[in-house]
Amino acid sequence: MKKLLLFRHESWIKAPHLTGLLKQLTIPHKIIKIDEGNAIPNDIHENIGGLVFWGGTMSVNDPLPWIEEEVNLIRIAKQKNIPVLGHCLGAQLISKALGGTVTRMEQKEIGWHQISFCDNELAQDWLHCLPKNIQVLTWHGEQFTIPAQSTHLYKTTYCPNQAFVINTMLGTQAHIEIDATMLEKWLDIYRHDIQPNNGSMQTIKKIKQDIQQKMDNMHILTNAFYKKWLSWIYTQSSAPNIYQKIQSIL
Score class of each variant (00 low, 15 high):
M1C: 14
M1E: 15
K3M: 09
L4K: 01
L6I: 10
F7D: 03
F7R: 08
E10A: 01
I13L: 01
H17R: 11
H17T: 06
L18T: 08
T19G: 05
G20K: 06
Q24V: 13
L25K: 02
T26Q: 15
P28K: 11
P28Q: 11
K30T: 12
I31K: 02
I31W: 07
I32N: 01
K33N: 14
D35N: 14
E36Q: 14
G37S: 10
N38M: 09
A39S: 15
I40Y: 12
I40C: 14
D43N: 15
H45M: 14
N47R: 06
I48H: 06
I48F: 12
G49N: 11
G49F: 01
F53A: 04
G56Q: 05
M58G: 04
V60L: 00
V60M: 00
N61H: 05
P63N: 11
L64G: 09
I67P: 01
I67S: 02
E69V: 04
E70V: 13
E70R: 06
N72I: 07
I74E: 04
I74D: 06
I76F: 06
Q79Y: 07
I82C: 01
L85C: 09
C88F: 02
L93M: 14
L93K: 06
S95R: 04
T101L: 12
R104S: 13
Q107T: 15
Q107V: 12
I110T: 09
I110R: 00
H113F: 11
Q114V: 06
C118V: 15
W126Q: 09
H128S: 15
H128N: 14
N133P: 07
N133Y: 09
N133F: 13
H140I: 08
G141S: 13
F144D: 07
A148G: 10
Q149I: 10
T151A: 09
H152G: 13
L153Y: 08
K155D: 06
Y158P: 00
Y158E: 01
C159V: 12
V165T: 13
I166H: 13
I166Q: 15
M169V: 12
M169A: 05
L170S: 03
G171R: 08
I176T: 02
E177H: 01
I178Y: 00
A180R: 00
L183F: 00
E184Y: 05
E184A: 03
L187Q: 00
D188C: 02
D188M: 07
I194R: 04
Q195T: 14
Q195Y: 09
P196D: 14
P196W: 02
N197H: 07
N198D: 15
S200Y: 09
M201H: 04
Q202P: 03
I204N: 00
I204V: 11
I207M: 00
Q209M: 10
Q212E: 08
Q212Y: 10
N223M: 08
A224R: 08
A224L: 12
F225I: 08
W229P: 01
L230Q: 03
I233R: 05
Y234A: 06
T235L: 08
S238H: 12
A239M: 04
P240M: 05
N241T: 15
I242H: 05
I242T: 11
Y243F: 14
Y243P: 03
Q244Y: 07
Q244S: 15
K245M: 13
